[in-house]
Simulated scan of single mutants.
Amino acid sequence: MDEKYSHFVYGVMMFLGILTSRYAEEDFLKSLPTKMIIGLATLFFAITTMMIAFSAALLIMQSGNSWIVIPIICLAIVPVTLFIIAQFRLLVDMSMSTYGAGILDRKMKPWL
């Protein structure tokens, strides 16, 4: 398999692992959030590397017409940036709730 597609395939496999899980009670604590975190992280990485490859290929192919290449790259980055902005907070929240301090692990001040 080609190196550039392996991250995308790995992300898709993580999402398929979520869909085909057995939905047991213990899966909702660690297994499913971990799969979702790995899937989102690899999806972000795959989209970013795909945009880098697209931009590099466009710059190489149109080296003489750089006046048109820069606006095309900027327009192509807009939907990717919007997707990452929309989903990055989910990734951070899931990471904090899965691996951060739990409800019972918090340090609390004594009441008296």
Rank of each mutant, 00 (worst) to 15 (best):
D93I: 05
K109G: 05
V69T: 15
S21T: 12
W111V: 15
S6C: 06
E25Y: 09
A46I: 03
L91F: 14
L40N: 03
S66P: 00
V92F: 14
P110V: 05
L91D: 02
M13D: 05
M51Q: 10
I84F: 06
T34M: 07
L82Q: 03
P71C: 10
R22D: 15
A56Q: 13
T42G: 06
M96D: 04
I77K: 13
P79E: 07
V9L: 05
E26A: 07
T42P: 02
W111M: 06
F15C: 02
T49I: 07
L58E: 10
Y10E: 13
C74F: 10
D2I: 01
I52W: 02
D2A: 00
L82K: 05
G64W: 09
G11A: 15
C74Y: 14
R22I: 04
L75P: 09
S66W: 05
V9Y: 01
W67L: 14
F15S: 05
I73P: 07
L32F: 02
L43D: 06
L43W: 06
Q87H: 11
I47V: 11
L40T: 09
W111Y: 03
D2V: 01
R22E: 15
K30P: 04
W67P: 02
L16S: 09
S55K: 04
L43V: 15
Y5W: 02
